[in-house]
């Protein structure tokens, strides 16, 4: 489903991540790694938000650099700690992203209800708590009809009810054919989500963790 070839990312000439070959099969996958290991860097690269060396293919058809529009239509990403202009509202952001990602009719309303943001979504982002901000970021990550959704630390800063709703949302989207790549320091085994595989970023590369 996702194929990474000869990936290398460096900051100021210092390599932070080097992944010669990585194939991700359909499913819900968990990426772990200590702070600063490069999880967000990897996610941002796959989302097409930062330049890197190498190739990233989706379904052997769309490459992030060669097919920028088609690839981004199918790969979504929700930031761990989003930063938005404080005078904009979730309404402004969601409306813009929903249009760009060609969200199906009724999807925005459904997500707003599931993550319970109707009471504040027309208020400026500058008045939001970290949980409200996180919910906004998660909604942006689910918009459109993506093939792959990457959620960076999806369970932090949100309340227990929202955690349960996010897990149900992931499960529902997955049943409809959407694949997931999640990163979290929290143990997904404590939730109802069933992980198909786990990976860890260490020694500046990505390795699969085999059970047992």
């Amino acid at each position: 489903m996702l194929h990474v070839k000869n990936y290398r990312k460096a900051y100021h000439g210092h390599t932070v991540l080097d992944v010669p070959e990585f194939q991700l099969q359909p499913g819900i996958h968990w990426i772990r790694g200590v702070n600063g290991s490069g999880k967000s860097t990897f996610f941002r690269s796959v989302a097409g938000m930062m330049p890197f060396e190498g190739e990233i293919w989706l379904e052997h058809t769309w490459e992030v650099t060669r097919n920028p529009v088609e690839f981004r239509l199918r790969v979504n990403y929700a930031e761990a700690e989003p930063l938005y202009p404080e005078y904009l509202s979730a309404f402004d952001l969601i409306s813009f992203v929903a249009k760009a990602k060609k969200a199906p009719s009724g999807q925005v309303e459904d997500l707003i209800e599931t993550l319970d943001i109707a009471s504040f979504w027309k208020q400026p982002v500058g008045t939001y708590s970290s949980g409200m901000l996180k919910k906004t970021s998660l909604i942006l990550g689910f918009l459109g009809t993506p093939t792959l959704i990457m959620l960076d630390e999806p369970l932090i800063t949100i309340d227990d009810r929202a955690v349960a709703n996010v897990c149900q949302l992931i499960d529902r989207y997955h049943q409809n054919g959407v694949q997931f790549l999640l990163s979290s320091h929290q143990d997904f085994r404590l939730t109802d989500l069933k992980m198909d595989s786990s990976y860890i970023i260490r020694n500046q590369t990505l390795e699969e963790i085999h059970p047992g």
């Binding site: 938000m49 920028p68 981004r72 990403y77 202009p85 760009a100």
Partner: peptide, 16 residues
Amino acid sequence: TFEHEYLLFVRNLPLS
């Protein structure tokens, strides 16, 4: 700086 600090998510959008 505004685009790179606050609107990084725009680079994930399929804008022609």
